[in-house]
Computed example of a mutant assay.
Amino acid sequence: MNHEHLELLVTRVMPYGKYQGRLLADLPGHYLNWFASQGFPPGEIGRLLALMHEIDHNGLKPLLEPLRKSKREQR
């Protein structure tokens, strides 16, 4: 896990599915759990979903708040 990957979680949106258009950091835990049980998609989106699953599963979502704030201030 590195800073750039964490920044992508608060800027990249889900490209398809039920939660299309929602930030990856805002995806609900049950949706991330479903991917974990079924298998994450290939490529970058799969790696980011797996990272978000780990963050959510371990109760670490507050770590993303400073990045969210920083991105909001940049707009």
Rank of each mutant, 00 (worst) to 15 (best):
M1H: 14
M1P: 08
M1W: 12
N2P: 02
H3N: 08
H3S: 14
H3G: 06
H3P: 02
E4W: 04
E4C: 13
H5E: 15
L6D: 03
E7N: 13
E7W: 14
L8H: 10
L9E: 03
L9V: 02
L9W: 05
V10D: 00
V10P: 01
V10L: 05
V10I: 14
T11H: 03
R12E: 01
R12N: 09
R12I: 03
V13C: 13
V13Y: 08
M14V: 05
M14N: 09
M14A: 05
P15M: 01
P15W: 00
P15Q: 02
Y16E: 08
Y16S: 12
G17W: 06
G17F: 02
Y19S: 04
Q20E: 11
Q20F: 09
G21L: 04
G21R: 02
R22K: 15
L23W: 03
L23D: 00
L24P: 04
L24F: 06
L24Y: 03
L24A: 02
L24E: 00
A25G: 06
A25R: 03
D26T: 09
L27Y: 01
P28T: 01
P28A: 01
G29T: 08
H30V: 13
H30N: 08
Y31Q: 11
Y31K: 08
L32I: 07
L32C: 05
N33D: 14
N33A: 12
N33T: 11
W34D: 10
W34P: 05
F35L: 11
F35H: 13
A36K: 11
A36H: 12
A36R: 11
A36G: 06
S37A: 14
Q38K: 14
Q38V: 10
Q38P: 07
G39R: 05
G39P: 03
F40E: 04
P41V: 15
P41M: 12
P42K: 14
P42S: 01
G43P: 04
E44D: 09
I45G: 04
G46F: 03
G46R: 01
R47G: 14
R47H: 14
R47E: 15
L48E: 02
L48H: 04
L49H: 04
L49Y: 06
L49A: 01
A50D: 09
A50C: 13
L51R: 04
M52S: 09
M52P: 12
M52I: 03
M52K: 06
M52A: 12
H53K: 10
E54R: 14
E54P: 04
I55P: 02
I55H: 01
D56A: 08
D56S: 10
H57T: 10
H57C: 09
N58M: 12
N58Y: 13
N58L: 09
G59S: 06
K61A: 08
K61R: 15
P62D: 01
P62N: 02
P62E: 00
P62F: 00
P62G: 00
L63G: 09
L64P: 05
L64D: 01
E65N: 07
E65L: 12
E65P: 08
E65H: 07
P66S: 00
P66Y: 00
L67G: 03
L67R: 05
R68P: 00
S70P: 03
K71H: 15
R72K: 11
R72V: 11
R72Q: 10
E73S: 13
Q74H: 14
R75Q: 13
R75C: 11
